[in-house]
């Protein structure tokens, strides 16, 4: 589903290489986790895949279902089925959460040649999904992420994911800043979306999220490369011994 080959990325503004040859394939129905120390390039990978400005791909490729992601605008990637749950969801003053959601859902449907959802159908759907994530009517009415707590922002990301039903979900440190209950809620939201046709790339710094969202494959990223891949046990190894040991191993 997602195929990343030898991806090299540097910053546009300065001559700094961040990703130094990433190879990664996520199959439909699978959950892949990426772990790695701070600054290793995990967020950069998620941004480059979703089409944020400021990065230059110097080598390599990234495809979603055979389509060249790197050639597409951010909104086209979304319509093609890519979704990024941001590490730091952005506040957008003045734009109502509900308006935003409806605009996004309908824009994607339009891009895919589907009919737009009626206001009533949309409302019904959003209420149902919001309820499961314990997002109340007030949060839906407020401007996007403005004045939301850390946990509320993350739940709002999962709500968007649930509404947009992407093919490939990238979750960038969705667990950071969450207490145990909130993490459970978010994990349940993600697990509810697990499906044979859907792939996940779960980026996390800590192992604990992976207790709730059990991965099929775990990758360790260090300094812009995936240095080791393995089963769920690899996450435990990181938890017990830190990244230093793996770094030493592969050095």
């Amino acid at each position: 589903m997602l195929e990343i080959k030898n991806l090299h990325v540097k910053l546009e503004e300065e001559d700094k290489q961040i990703l130094k040859g990433v190879d990664l394939t996520v199959e439909a129905g699978k959950v892949h986790a990426i772990m790695g120390p701070n600054g290793s390039g995990k967020s950069t990978l998620s941004y480059v895949l979703s089409g944020r400005d400021g990065y230059v791909v110097t080598e390599g490729s990234a495809q979603l279902d055979g389509h060249d992601l790197l050639e597409m605008e951010a909104e086209e990637r979304a319509a093609a089925g890519l979704f990024l749950a941001f590490q730091y969801p952005v506040e957008i003053p003045g734009v109502g959460n509900m308006t935003f959601l409806r605009t996004a859902v309908n824009a994607q449907r339009k891009a895919r040649g589907q009919e737009e959802l009626s206001a009533a159908d949309f409302l019904k759907l959003v209420r149902e999904k919001a309820k499961a994530l314990q997002i109340d009517a007030d949060m839906l009415k407020r401007p996007v992420n403005v004045g939301f707590s850390g946990g509320e922002k993350k739940r709002n990301e999962i709500l968007q994911m649930a509404m947009l039903e992407p093919k490939l979900c990238i979750l960038d440190e969705t667990d950071s800043g969450l207490d145990v209950d909130a993490m459970k809620l978010v994990a349940d939201g993600v697990n509810a979306l697990r499906d044979e046709g859907r792939g996940f790339l779960v980026i996390t710094h800590y192992q604990r999220l992976l207790d709730h969202i059990v991965p099929d494959v775990v990758h360790i990223m260090v300094d812009g490369r995936i240095v080791k891949s393995g089963g769920p046990d690899l996450a435990l190894e990181v938890e017990n011994h830190g990244y230093a040991r793996i770094q030493a191993e592969v050095a």
Partner: peptide, 17 residues
């Protein structure tokens, strides 16, 4: 970028803002 990453085309995202 946040709006566009959800599939909202640039022009519509700009107008929302």
């Amino acid at each position: 970028f946040y709006l566009r990453s959800r599939g909202v085309p640039r022009e519509i995202a700009t107008d929302l803002m």
